[in-house]
Amino acid sequence: MNMKAFSTLAGLSSYTLRYYEKVGLLSKIQRNSSGHRVYTAKDLEWVNFVKRLKDTGMPLVKIQEYAKLRALGASTVLNRQQLLEYHKEQLQAHIEQQKNHLLALENKINLYKANKVR
C-alpha cells in the first residue's frame, strides 16, 4: 500500500512515518519503480507494536534498541524478551503509582463531598 493509505491505517502522519524510518524504527521499506514507499501488512503490524510500546511509556531509545535487535533476527529473541520483561516491570510499577495517585484524589473528592473540608 502507498504511504497515504498506510498512514491512515496506522493512524500516523506521513511525517512521523518518515521520521520512524530515519531513526531506524521502520527499516527495509520497499520502493516501487517510481521510488515511492510501498508498505505491507507486516509493516502495519510492526508500527502498531511500536505505537503500543510508545503508549506504554517505553523510551524511544529502548524502542530503537528493540528494533535493532529485531532486525538482527532470531538470534536476538532472548535479548528482545529481556528488554520487554524489563519494560513490563517498569510499566507495572508505573500503574501501581498511578493507582495510588488515583486513590489519593478519590479520598480528597470524598472529603469535599462530605463537606468536611472547604
Results as ranks from 00 to 15, higher is better:
L111D: 14
L105A: 06
L111F: 13
K42H: 13
P59R: 01
R118N: 15
F6G: 06
L53M: 12
V38R: 11
I63Y: 00
E96H: 15
A114G: 08
F6A: 01
G35R: 03
Q98L: 15
L9A: 03
F49L: 09
R31C: 06
E106R: 15
T8Y: 04
R80M: 06
D43N: 05
R18F: 12
K113S: 13
R80L: 07
A114L: 15
L83Q: 08
H36K: 13
T76D: 01
K42V: 12
L44E: 03
N115T: 06
Y112T: 07
K62C: 08
I95W: 05
V50E: 00
Y66I: 06
L69A: 00
K68V: 11
L12C: 01
L102G: 07
S27G: 05
K88F: 05
A10E: 00
E89F: 06
A67T: 03
V38Q: 05
I63M: 10
S13Q: 04
L17Q: 02
D55V: 02
R118C: 14
H36A: 15
K54A: 10
L78G: 12
V23M: 01
L84Y: 04
N110E: 15
Y19D: 02
E106W: 08
L111M: 14
R118P: 09
A71I: 06
I109G: 08
I63L: 07
T40D: 02
Q64E: 03
K28I: 08
E21N: 06
G24H: 03
M58Q: 01
T76Q: 05
G11L: 04
K99V: 02
R70E: 11
A74T: 14
I109V: 13
Q82F: 07
K108Y: 12
H87E: 03
Y15M: 05
Y66N: 08
V47S: 11
R70F: 08
L26I: 04
T40Y: 03
N110L: 13
A114N: 12
Q82T: 12
Q92I: 10
Y86A: 11
L12K: 01
S7N: 04
P59L: 14
S13A: 13
K116A: 15
N79R: 12
T8M: 06
K113V: 12
L78R: 14
M58D: 03
E85R: 07
L53P: 00
K62T: 14
N2P: 05
E96Q: 13
Q90V: 12
V23I: 09
K42W: 11
S14H: 05
L84V: 04
